[in-house]
Design a protein around this nucleic acid. Structure first.
Lengths: 265, 265
DNA sequence: CGCCTCCGGATTGTCAACAATCCTACGATC
DNA sequence: GATCGTAGGATTGTTGACAATCCGGAGGCG
């Protein structure tokens, strides 16, 4: 989905120096040298365009919190930063607007989205809708053994990260776990919709809590979820998922203000 | 959501003559004359840009079947048809790509999406996920009386259309019913996701069956759904919704080839 | 005969400049 | 003193031209 660009676009320009420009020119990297090295299967190679690279870089920049919420994204400024014309920047920004990371006001500019508490609750409502449907779909699969191993492995990865107190890794493992769950449903549209809300989730995490805290329960929850998702009791799995996704809302409502720590599935 | 453009963008250029151009120039319609007449509330006025108008026109054109599935959308050609430059056309096409109506292949062009039978099943899977979540959400609402009236009215509208064998009107009523259901959940993300799958639904309808047939059961189903959705038995509502949305898949699987008639919720 | 190479046309991607729009602040008027 | 009207500056929207890419077929070679 999402045209034919790779889903997890790599970081091309993480931090953008104001004047000095990093790579990202087609003259420097001839288009002919495709990214042959990391093509996983023998399907269509992902043609790379400047727009796509700029979109990826900007997505990473926004998700990493390099731009504050509500901040305006200046076209000309970004264009000079990336050493690119305004065209690709415009296209990239529009893509991120459609993904929900930016909001665009015609004739005024695009801004980093400001997610309210209501938005956070809505994000998790949408996630429950998507992941719940994925659970239902998974329950109808003939072979769930491979998925069980996969989810268990992700849960272990998270447990180790929690033990090592590597919160960045915890967040990644969390995202990977839920993505694996949704992708297992083999529904392009569920996966596509999940892409959007997962990006918003990352935005919430970074903007509202800036990391993971008090995550003792997290790994255990994911272990349970891995078992239930590939088990035979669909209702129990749904209930566990509901509890799991309701958690951050409760926590957020309890702590109220941002800055303090919180766990987030 | 979706920036601040109106959701159901009106038809600006329904059929586009090859050379002679209809309106759609900013010189012809001074930007100052905003669409004050049909602004429902006193919120932000929707700024109109060429890109947005072109996107609306192209969306209508694709959904109305003016472009065959798989057909390439030529930028220059469309630009001359709309009497605009290629820039706005590019932006509009990218927007429709994100909406799932077109697919883009970098350096090759964008094409009208070709929905397979698997895609149709996937669309209805996604719809069940979204509308099921909406049902759950509605069940938690304090006051469902207004919604009950609204849904019942839509169901009646459909019943009359079925009686009159006005299949175009039946389709519109169907879309309106399900949109009202989802919007009642008051979840921006559910509504946003529903926008996309509903557009794909319309595409399916037009491309696979080109109209409604054998819809005797349709109105009754929607009446039941209206009652159950605003009733107290959530499980029953979910079950009815599942049956309702599974219908077209069964029918399509039975008839196999397109062209023959089918009902579609 | 099949395959590879190369070329031409068509199409898309990108660029830099122009025009329209918006926001802010300043001054005039009541 | 407050409100309205109006320039100024900055930003976005749009345009037309240039460059890169892809697809088709003609031609040569094994």
């Amino acid at each position: 989905m999402k045209a034919c660009f790779p889903r997890g676009s790599a970081t091309f320009v993480a931090a953008c120096p104001p004047i000095a420009r990093t790579g990202l020119r087609r003259s420097a990297v001839p288009m002919v040298e495709r990214v042959l090295s990391l093509a996983p299967s023998l399907s269509r190679l992902p043609r790379v365009t400047l727009s796509g690279q700029v979109a990826g870089a900007m997505r990473d920049a926004v998700l990493s919190g390099l731009f504050r919420p509500g901040q305006q994204m200046n076209e000309a400024d970004l264009a000079t930063r990336f050493a690119v014309s305004r065209g690709p920047v415009r296209e990239a920004m529009q893509r991120l607007v459609q993904e929900g990371l930016l909001v665009g006001h015609p004739h005024r500019g695009v801004f980093v989205v400001e997610l309210t508490e209501a938005d956070l609750a809505d994000v998790y409502l949408a996630r429950e809708a998507i992941e719940g449907a994925a659970l239902r779909r998974i329950a109808a699969l003939p072979d769930r053994a491979a998925l069980r191993l996969r989810l268990a492995a992700e849960a272990e990865r998270m447990a180790e990260a929690v033990a090592a107190e590597n919160w960045r890794e915890v967040a990644d493992a969390d995202l990977a776990f839920h993505r694996a769950l949704v992708d297992a449903a083999a529904s392009p549209r569920l996966s596509r919709m999940f892409d959007t809300v997962q990006a918003e989730t990352r935005l919430c995490l970074h903007l509202l809590m800036a990391g993971y805290r008090s995550s003792a329960e997290l790994a255990a929850e994911h272990r349970r979820l891995a078992a239930l998702a590939t088990g035979d009791d669909l209702a129990a799995a749904q209930a566990e998922l509901g509890r799991h996704l309701a958690d951050p809302i409760h926590i957020l409502r309890r702590i109220g203000a941002p800055g303090s720590g919180a766990s987030a599935p």
